[in-house]
């Protein structure tokens, strides 16, 4: 019984973190799209091909810029914030798994999960940027 109780609690916590992460993302996406459709002045792209040729809404890596843009209600940054929250959920899940295995004192799986996390971070901060500058 002693080992069952914390495991259950953590599962519920992970489930809640995911639920609110996903909900936050969905709310931001709906709000951003609504703002985009409501405020779209004539100067913004009218078609998909125009959107791509003008590189409209090219995503930025500057989280500060995304956040302040979103706070000021700029539709493109509200949408980007929603996407960033969504893209971060799998990483949050791996982080939460490290905690789950640590609480269960499962050393092998703490190690395995840390390896997965390391591969993820490697791809995010080393391979990704290097690839796109090469391509």
């Amino acid at each position: 019984m002693k080992s069952e109780t914390p495991r259950y609690d953590l599962n519920v916590i992970v489930s809640l973190v995911l639920k609110y992460g996903v909900l936050t993302s969905a709310v931001l996406l709906v709000a951003g799209l609504s703002l985009f459709l409501a405020e779209r002045p004539a100067g913004l792209p009218a078609s998909i091909s125009q959107l791509i040729s003008t590189n409209y809404g090219r995503p930025t890596l500057d989280l500060g810029q995304i956040f302040s843009g979103a706070v000021h209600g700029q539709p493109i940054f509200v949408i980007q914030l929603g996407l960033v929250v969504l893209l971060a959920t799998p990483i949050a899940r791996v982080l939460a798994s490290v905690l789950i295995f640590a609480v269960e004192r499962d050393k092998i799986y703490v190690a395995i999960t840390l390896v997965v996390l390391a591969i993820l971070l490697l791809s995010l901060f080393v391979v990704g940027p290097a690839e796109s500058s090469a391509g």
Partner: peptide, 18 residues
Amino acid sequence: ASTAIFYVGGYINPILAA
């Protein structure tokens, strides 16, 4: 793991992806 490559490359367009 492969998101970064697309994101940094500018291929995750907010309007197209939302």
